[in-house]
Nucleic acid binder design. Structure first.
Lengths: 337, 337
DNA sequence: CAAATTCTTGCATACGTATTCAAACTGTGC
DNA sequence: GCACAGTTTGAATACGTATGCAAGAATTTG
């Protein structure tokens, strides 16, 4: 089977108009009479013509492409974000060009993105390389850091209020009467971890407590398991653990229940962060902090659209409210009202 | 900040060569002397030049874009596939253009894909519309149905051996001494469900059993919960359920354990299909059939690359072996060896 | 009804690259 | 020094569309 491309010229010939007329007929706000447009659209339908986005991108400089950069998809927070983001962009005539990358070859990936003339970049689970920061500043492509931020870079960011989220957790655990409260960190160089941890500590301090123990799970399933074993290696164990995200919290709960034979929440309380779908599953019923993913997507879209529209990049930071979702993995606060 | 595009012409001027020379320097197998290429690359680096993929796509007809069409990402099988697929394509210089769609507006999406001049299409969790089938046959773009197939269409397909997988489950449950074996179907019009169910029934028949009850979960979390309630509404309940995929199986287990107060696998055995990461989580330890996702990705890639290379589409169907992964959600077979 | 104004339309060009073609250059063997 | 093959190079062109421009058509205004 051979590729039979049909171009605007072909349509023009059939409709007996100029190629310009065809082009204009497919542009929303162009100067074409109703009858001409009708003729063109009819001919186009007959030939199965669709404007070539590539050619359009060439001349107009608008590729309608948004690069989404992601490191892993095994934390369920990100697939859901990608789905919602892609849906929202599609509605606006944009599309998602997906890049998976470890932090290592990020520079190469950046080059590739630029090659595709993307009109915007969303970095959803990778930290911002200095190269990218520079490049994006140079070229004027808007960049949104999703669920992370980098104060020194010109990139915009969208996050939940991680500080307040961490604080909510601290208060809840204190109110629950816990005395040996531990923390399992994500990646220590991530802004999410920094803020959640800072807010958590601040919340503890407000009740004159300090963190009883701390370990690092690096946002990975295995890392969290190791961190848990480390925290619970001695005889006297924590009576509550705040885990920096849900993905790790599941692993923590598994280790506690299976290896340590502990009962949750009677022996130990667990609180996570994100509120991914699995948190509501019967096997976990994880008390957690909900990130408002819809609001975060909306903010991302509006930042992108605005900056693409007015062809200028400026740094904006959206911080959206987080909310504690109470389920069954943490002891309820003592009646205190 | 303004967009400062640097073109091959700019590089040519700086390197004091022709634009052609620049183009050739960035093409692997082109006629350029080593010294010229060196000059060009040096100038390019200095200016931060990268070939414009859009322009290249224009002239050469190769967009290096593969459309991936997906309906939902909440079944974790798909995010993982997308990650692996994207990685593999990136290594080969291709990139994933992501399309999220319900079956409704699929035709629109197809038009959009064509507009981007994609070189291949992977349909990963949506059924093939007749429009797409026709279009793809017309234009000669290779289409791979991932984890599904449509015998009448010209599209290639990659699946696991769903029939054999279903049979493995039947045999395992029979060997486990189960007497009231039920089935919870996915979407009844999906090829995966058809095959898994057919294989399952065949397996049962081989041991002179038939399915004891059946309900439909439509591959959704809530659908599976309802199906479970339906199957277990009367006093006499099934003693085993084969659920058409893992995603539903988790929901089934939740309902059985929480609402029905049943113990798995003592009271009832559950077997799923896919072997998503959550199947190995402590809260479920789901016995399931593993789909060889790496092998399926490999097959997809090789079908695409081959057909793109030789610029011809032909229908190929890869069926890869499935394997039963024994965990703890189903009673072990009685010692029979 | 003529003049002024707004709408439509086609021509020509531009976008940034790959590629064909012929010319220029290189080196080889006689 | 010459004919030859092989290699390297630049000029020109093509890809499919959008758009500035000017001319023509249609409409409004006085």
């Amino acid at each position: 089977m051979k590729r039979a491309k049909v171009t605007s010229g072909d349509v023009a010939r059939l409709a007996d108009v100029s190629q310009s007329a065809v082009s204009r007929s497919f542009s929303e706000d162009a100067s074409v009479s109703a009858v001409t447009r009708a003729k063109v659209l009819k001919a186009a339908r007959k030939l199965g013509y669709r404007p070539n986005v590539i050619a359009r991108a060439m001349i107009s400089g608008r590729s309608r492409l948004i690069a989404v950069l992601v490191a892993y998809l095994d934390n369920q927070f990100y697939p859901i974000v990608i789905e919602q983001l892609s849906r929202a962009l599609q509605e606006r005539g944009f599309h998602v060009l997906l890049f998976i990358t470890d932090t290592g070859n990020q520079d190469v990936v950046v080059q590739q993105m630029m090659g595709y003339q993307v009109e915007g970049i969303v970095m959803a689970s990778a930290s911002l390389s200095s190269t990218l920061a520079r490049e994006c500043a140079q070229t004027g492509i808007p960049v949104v850091l999703f669920n992370r931020y980098a104060p020194s870079s010109p990139a915009s960011s969208v996050t939940s209020d991680n500080i307040e989220g961490g604080r909510l957790v601290a208060r809840y655990l204190v109110d629950g009467g816990h005395k040996r409260i531990a923390y399992i960190a994500g990646s220590e160089d991530s802004s999410t971890n920094r803020d959640r941890e800072a807010g958590f500590y601040r919340g503890l301090a407000e009740s004159s407590q300090i963190v009883w123990a701390r370990a690092v799970g690096n946002y990975s399933f295995e890392g969290a398991a190791d961190a848990t074993r480390q925290l619970c290696s001695s005889k006297i164990k924590p009576d509550a653990i705040f885990v920096a995200n849900d993905h790790m919290a599941f692993s923590v709960m598994d280790v506690l229940r299976i290896e340590m034979k502990l009962h949750i929440p009677n022996d130990i309380s667990i609180i996570g962060y994100d509120d991914v779908p699995e948190a509501d599953w019967g096997g976990y019923k994880l008390t957690t902090v909900r990130q408002p993913s819809e609001a975060m997507i909306d903010a991302t879209i509006s930042i992108l659209m605005e900056q693409i529209q007015q062809e200028t990049v400026s740094r904006r930071a959206a911080i959206l409210p987080a909310e504690l979702i109470v389920r069954q993995s943490a002891r309820l606060p003592k009646n205190k009202s």
